[in-house]
């Protein structure tokens, strides 16, 4: 049993890199990624788990980084949009550009991570599968249609 009161040193595995840093237990993973590690591609939209803008992959699964304390992420591997883009744009990212699946771009990293996880587990998703998988991510600009099209195209392996 480990009790942590004030600031504590933790070790996080983010995008395959190990980071040691000091956090208060109450620091949300979203805040630590953004303001301690400078990974500002993770965006904060509501801080109550509804909008999905802060979605990251924890051990490969989409989770809300505003509903996880950074201290809880010790021992897990976290992937953010910066990790997804480490070797240039993926097929999915290129499909987003080709299909105009983004406008202001604020929700986009979270959509990309959610869709990346979906395509990993479902090779040939239907439009309905896609709409359900991204239904926890709010986009206020696009009306979702081009996002769905982009994910469908990436699933089919269509290249621009």
């Amino acid at each position: 049993m480990k009790t942590i009161q004030a600031t504590q040193s933790i070790t996080l595995n983010i995008n395959g890199q190990t980071h040691s840093l000091d956090v208060e237990p109450r620091f949300l993973l979203s805040d630590v990624l953004r303001h301690k590690l400078g990974l500002t591609g993770t965006h904060v939209g509501c801080e109550h788990g509804v909008c999905g803008a802060c979605t990251v992959l924890v051990d490969g699964k989409p989770e809300r980084s505003c509903l996880v304390f950074a201290i809880q992420a010790e021992g897990s591997s976290v992937e953010t949009i910066e990790g997804l883009s480490a070797d240039g744009m993926t097929r999915l990212q290129r499909a987003f550009q080709e299909h105009h699946a983004l406008q202001c771009g604020f929700c986009t990293p979270a959509f990309l991570l959610t869709a990346t996880a979906l395509l990993k587990q479902t090779k040939d998703p239907t439009e309905q599968d896609i709409r359900e998988a991204i239904s926890g991510n709010i986009c206020r600009c696009t009306g979702y249609q081009f996002i769905v099209d982009a994910i469908l195209a990436a699933a089919k392996g269509e290249e621009a």
Binding site: M1, K2, I4, E24
Partner: peptide, 21 residues
């Protein structure tokens, strides 16, 4: 919208959790 401070206890077993509680 940020949580108030708290102390954090991570437990490895149900027994530890019950003790802490």
């Amino acid at each position: 919208m940020k949580p108030a401070p708290f102390s954090y206890i991570r437990v490895a077993t149900v027994e530890e959790a019950a003790n802490a509680l």
